[in-house]
Design a protein around this nucleic acid. Structure first.
Lengths: 234, 234
DNA sequence: CGGGCCCTTGACGTTAGTCAAAGAGCGTGG
DNA sequence: CCACGCTCTTTGACTAACGTCAAGGGCCCG
């Protein structure tokens, strides 16, 4: 069930292309911490002293606006890292981080890592690569928010869940709908209604399972909502 | 008018904290290119071979959705870099880049830079730092889109234009309203109407100038739209 | 003077948020 | 085992926000 830690860490995006030996000393000094669902790992604005790697469970990164509105920035699972900003001196976390399930995290001291970076260009490059990849994901999210409807965003969400599948496939929603909604930038009520509207292109959602009649049909729908809405009204 | 190139490059975020000598050879080999307004610098999906630094003018990064919808991801000015993804091997640009004014860009060959990175940890760190900072900006944008109204987003936009000013201040809108609207994720019509609604908190927009009666009042408005809308209807 | 572009305005439709209510699990304690 | 309270989810009715369409004014430039 729980993969050996070394495996997870070695395959983590931020350490891809780094020889294991270089980071082994840092890792061995890093404690593994257990968190219960709902626990806060760090707050937005807090001085950043640690970087974390998710070993098990789900962690959400979020921002609170001045009027108490929560925007979920990312939902992380095994192998993902967060708090990378900690490698820079005197910076604060720009998001809050909270466990949305029971979770095990590797907590890496930022100073340790910063020192390791000084000595090893490959490590710096690896972190850079991970950071750039992360940017791509953020850009994708921005694009979606700016130019897609909520139905399209959910469609895309489902498509990413059923990676390379074709034809019919069933996916398990990885966390509760409140969180999915927040992540996609909408309210739970809207999520519910949007799922409903996906029925017109062969998607049924039952409890935490989504049954996708035809992946291709869903993809067509997401990429060109227009015709479909015409069809819907007909 | 046009600052010496060295100054701009040296102060660019991506080369902050790098000794000038390390990058001098790379820079000296990099051509300065002139672009006219409306010219495309690179397309989304194109193989990334160069990284650019803006010396003068404005460049927009954008993404096209499958149905021809353009989402503006960033608007860059002097000292900003883009196309950093080029330092990774075999990657493609994740956005298109286009000049929105006449512009001068320093075009840095990605291989050159990648080699320089291999030799110099500080350079990798510097790029990492810039990338992380960029992420912060993207996260901020995401937060805004997910939890703020268009009026609030414009308010925030104006606030960032009048940096540390207090009391009354007048700012020049740095580019045309079509672009501002696209950047903030709305249509020009909505932008126009939103400007209008800012009149209730002492902001007037005439042509390309915004006259802000009271920066504090605007800030209050942006941070807590709720009371203001109550007041408005009273 | 005329054409094109940017910007604004109005009327209207669609989308998503709000408020309220009710049903469906689920764990707890009787 | 059942009843209870809890949270999550769905649904409906309503409202507010934003996009769309269409028209018109101002401005620049040929």
């Amino acid at each position: 069930m729980t993969k050996p830690i070394d495996d997870i860490v070695r395959n983590a995006e931020i350490f891809r292309s780094v020889c294991v030996d270089c980071i082994a000393p840092v890792i061995s000094r890093s404690p593994i911490r257990e968190f219960r669902r709902g626990t806060s790992i760090h707050l937005q604005g807090e001085r950043a002293h640690s970087l974390y790697i998710v070993l098990d469970g789900c962690v959400k990164l979020y921002r609170m606006s001045s009027m108490g509105n929560e925007a979920v920035i990312a939902v992380l699972t095994r192998g993902d890292a967060f708090g990378e900003i900690a490698v820079l001196p005197d910076e604060a976390y720009t998001t809050g981080a909270e466990c949305v399930t029971q979770a095990r995290l590797l907590q890496i001291d930022a100073r340790d890592l910063a020192q390791a970076i000084e000595c090893d260009t490959r490590l710096a490059q690896s972190l850079l690569a991970a950071s750039l990849k992360r940017q791509v994901a953020l850009v994708h999210q921005l694009e979606q928010l700016k130019s897609q409807s909520s139905v399209q965003r959910i469609g895309d969400f489902l498509l990413r869940l059923c990676k390379n599948e074709v034809g019919t496939c069933t996916v398990v929603l990885p966390y509760d709908k409140v969180l999915i909604a927040a992540w996609l930038g909408m309210k739970p009520e809207s999520l519910s209604r949007s799922f409903r509207r996906l029925q017109t292109c062969g998607v049924r959602v039952v409890k935490d399972r989504a049954i996708i009649g035809s992946v291709d049909r869903l993809r067509d729908f997401v990429e060109a909502d227009r015709e479909q809405s015409a069809a819907r009204s007909a």
